[in-house]
């Protein structure tokens, strides 16, 4: 589903060049739930951003669904993200000025979907995450766990093949974190959505199919926890 080939990412300031990612080769298969772990600053989030086409690698290629993404324009990238990928962030990134329902509708705004259909799909997504009774609320009226569930609803509303989650439980207590994790596992199991999750939490990572460890921008370990494909 996602193929990273010889990915390098470096940040250049006036004096020094920092290598954030060093020759990463990684394939994520369809229907897989992959977790990425590593100490702070090892390049986990950078890797996830590159997979999500939010950031371009300095060197190397990203293929998604067999398609090379290197030379896509801003418009094509936006369209591609919209159709294929859903994002979940550690700090939720909900738009505080919009109600829950409008937040969830957001990805559909950039597709040719009628207003009534948008509402319908957003309601379905909110029902899936168990928040159908909070549609008219503003994000500020919700708890952290509820906010993250809204974010998940937003990520799945457009039925993307891939969900990229950057420490989705990082800002939540363990009970809420478990709820969110269960939701993602359920999504992966029932809908077959490919999920890549960055996490600090070993117990969360152990629940996934495969665990990749990064250290100082390099891949040090690739450990299959569950055999999904025989």
């Amino acid at each position: 589903m996602i193929q990273l080939k010889q990915i390098e990412k470096s940040y250049r300031t006036d004096t020094i060049e920092t290598l954030a990612l060093n020759r990463i080769n990684l394939s994520v298969f369809q229907g897989e739930f992959l977790s990425i772990m590593g100490p702070s600053g090892c390049g986990k989030s950078t890797l996830l951003n590159i997979m999500g086409l939010l950031d371009a690698p300095t060197k190397g290629e990203v293929l998604i669904d067999g398609r090379l993404t290197t030379h896509l324009s801003d418009k094509q990238l936006a369209h591609f993200r919209n159709q294929t990928i859903g994002f979940i962030f550690q700090s939720f990134h909900l738009i505080n000025d919009l109600r829950v329902l409008d937040n969830v509708e957001l990805p559909l705004l950039y597709r040719k979907v009628s207003a009534s259909e948008r509402v319908q799909l957003a309601k379905e997504a909110l029902t899936k995450v168990g928040l159908s009774n909070r549609m008219k609320h503003f994000p500020s009226q919700l708890s952290g766990g509820q906010k993250q569930r809204v974010a998940i609803a937003r990520a799945i509303v457009g039925r993307p093949q891939i969900i990229l989650a950057d420490e989705p439980t990082g800002n939540l207590d363990s009970a809420m974190g478990n709820e969110i994790m269960d939701l993602l596992l359920h999504l992966n199991a029932t809908e077959g959505t490919t999920i890549v999750m960055v996490t600090h939490d070993e117990t969360m990572a152990k629940k996934t199919h495969r665990l990749v460890r990064l250290f100082d921008g390099a891949q040090v370990n690739d450990h299959t926890l569950k055999q999904v494909y025989a």
């Binding site: 801003d74 418009k75 936006a78 859903g86 990134h93 957001l106 950039y110 597709r111």
Partner: peptide
Amino acid sequence: SSEIGVRKAFGASSST
């Protein structure tokens, strides 16, 4: 900027 980031991530192009 957070809103801009989210909108871009979910498929808004710069021109949109």
